[in-house]
Design a protein around this nucleic acid. Structure first.
Lengths: 139, 139
DNA sequence: CTAACTGCAAACGTTTTGCAACTTT
DNA sequence: AAAGTTGCAAAACGTTTGCAGTTAG
């Protein structure tokens, strides 16, 4: 499950270029962390993780880069907590389980949840995505 | 669908009292707007709506009141947009359809969507809720 | 009378922006 | 060279908090 999927870990620069994202040292650094494994990072998490090594990356660049990655579909926003956004490097179809006590986010594979019927969409609209969050807490 | 359900529109003070919420002029005013119909308000929406009439209600009180109402289960938070929280006066089981272009939120009745299978919950955890957001955009 | 609530303004944490210097193409 | 990106600090945004004064029970 938490394996690296189709992200070219060896040629991140080329990968970013192929995604309409100009590769810079900072963006490659951020991509390296983001695509090392499937995980859910807040902007702050990434800001800290990225600054344990050179090159230094500013907060503005972390936000700009995450914005660019989301815009180009390299990562996805996860809305489970009202106080901050999480970024998910797993872009394959899946859902989330959120632990209200610990704040932990876990993936739910498409085989573990089944949506049988969808509502009729408004006229002139198409489906963008279906997001399911299963919230759990201690018994 | 958007009918007033079981909220006692006539005796809001008594209703609030029965929900462990001390009824004050401000809270009754907020409740009046919130429970007039099933709708999705941001804190700012409510702050504006509540201040078209007496008594004046401060932003702090709007937030405190919404917090109290959520804590006591009178309303529910809806997370569809990363930039702000929406508050839903419909507490019956239902899901949401979110229009990415307009920001509009619509209810999806339990008859319009079917979740067939849920993942196994972590040990020692119980289900709190399952939130589904169907996101649509223009074709 | 006491506990709870209110308004205000200040503080908070997250995210965005303006701009001059610097890379990428 | 032109276009795009970076860092910094400042600003903006939604939301929370501290506190003196007010209201509910």
């Amino acid at each position: 499950m938490d394996e690296l999927s189709d992200k070219p870990f060896s040629d991140l620069a080329g990968f970013l270029r192929s995604c309409n994202v100009t590769p810079t040292a900072q963006r490659i650094q951020i991509a390296r962390i983001l695509f090392a494994k499937n995980a859910h990072y807040s902007a702050e998490d990434l800001y800290i993780a990225v600054n344990t090594t050179e090159p230094r990356v500013s907060k503005a660049t972390v936000y700009n880069t995450l914005g660019a990655f989301v815009r180009e579909g390299l990562i996805k926003e996860v809305l489970v907590d009202s106080s901050k956004v999480f970024y998910d490097s797993n872009t394959t179809p899946h859902q989330h389980l959120y632990d209200l006590d610990t704040g932990e986010i876990q993936d739910i594979g498409p085989d573990q949840i089944t949506l049988q019927q969808l509502p009729m969409l408004p006229a002139g609209k198409c489906l963008d995505s279906v997001e399911v969050v299963v919230k759990v807490r201690k018994q």
